[in-house]
Design a protein around this nucleic acid. Structure first.
Lengths: 203, 203
DNA sequence: GTATTACGCTACGACTCGTAGCGAAAGCTT
DNA sequence: AAGCTTTCGCTACGAGTCGTAGCGTAATAC
């Protein structure tokens, strides 16, 4: 028979405080050193744990950084600003502010680069980061449909395709502007972008 | 007084063949190993040159991979397909095909990640890769204006802003679809995307 | 022919990696 | 309380990579 506590495992449980300290130390190291100079030994020292403890919990640098960055995306919300246009502008500005943080920038891009050759890593990123953003698109559409700003979808397959398209356009444009063009995602840009997007969706 | 050959430098000139071999070897190593496992010693061996030769020409892994990937972007052209919509679809498919190659994927994303903490590297990427794509946007607009499909711009500042926006939307959406959503940029997607973009620009 | 630069090769200290082994600590179970 | 189980911190280790220095040789400009 299985115990009811700690998933039935006996023995000393893993320290939750250590987890938090390690992830915070990882983000701090990303800010100071960037991806390439970040070493797991350094992270362990910063977090005040032994290097072996770190290797017991994460398979490597990739997985660790994914988890460290994923926590940042917990902050994303979809505020109700009354209209679809205002909702889009709000969430885009939020997303851009997140991407402007150096730990998010360098960490996210680096693990995405690694994920091009590692399917398990890509799935991990999708589950803990990308899907979290995608939900905002779905929520935003549902809210706009309730308001009557968007027509109700008839074909669910087509609806999913459109949602995917919007997601790639919105997230892609913000990421490209911020990380590749390296120019600010300010209110003026967001306003122009939102106008383009809504016009494009009006057909 | 300066000589007319080889930029006036005396002595044995650098081998152009070595340059080509090194860049080709870098791409091959990117395909087989990806960014993180790629070592300069391995590239030197593949290229048939000494490791020291490599270090005499490039400051490090970042700069080498930028140059190796930049050569791939030389292939990008803007074919004249008769209409703006067809031109966009053509160039987007071309860009997507380029990004689908593993050496472009992993190499480009990795140096972009590093560039978030290295301004000189970002400038190198901009000059040798990004601007080359951006020119396609400017050419496409000029061609469309000649055809009368787009109005002539009056304010040059506003025109530049719009071009930047289009560039971020197009390149960003394709990159996001291909590298983050990890779904194919096929003709159906390109068609939907082009429709959204042109509708959005019609205002 | 001579000066000058590039090249291949070897060797090197410094660093990081990921793992193994150990004794001690912490919590669950009875 | 006693015993069992797992985690933790620490140390040490071989393997691999890094970037550089030094040397003799090759190739070109003058």
């Amino acid at each position: 028979m299985q115990s009811r506590t700690s998933a039935g495992r006996a023995g000393r449980p893993r320290s939750a405080a250590a987890d938090a300290a390690i992830l915070a130390a990882t983000r701090a190291a990303l800010v100071e050193l960037g991806w390439s100079r970040l070493t797991l030994g350094d992270v362990a020292t910063r977090a005040g744990v032994a290097k072996t403890t770190l290797y017991r919990r994460w398979a490597g640098k990739n997985e660790l950084v994914v988890d460290a960055v994923a926590e940042l995306f917990d902050e994303l919300r979809l505020p109700d600003r009354g209209t679809l246009a205002a909702d889009i502008e709000g969430v885009v500005l939020q997303f851009a502010a997140l991407l402007a943080r150096p730990e998010a920038k360098s960490g996210l891009m680096a693990v995405l680069a690694e994920s091009t050759r590692d399917d398990a890593l890509r799935e991990r990123i999708r589950a803990s980061i990308v899907d979290r953003q995608k939900r905002l698109v779905l929520e935003g559409r549902a809210r706009a449909q309730q308001r009557g700003e968007l027509p109700l979808e008839t074909d669910p397959v087509e609806a999913a395709r459109t949602a995917d398209l919007i997601f790639d356009v919105v997230a892609g444009a913000v990421v490209h502007r911020e990380l590749i063009s390296a120019e600010p995602v300010d209110e003026e840009w967001v306003h122009s972008f939102t106008r383009l997007l809504l016009l494009g969706l009006s057909g």
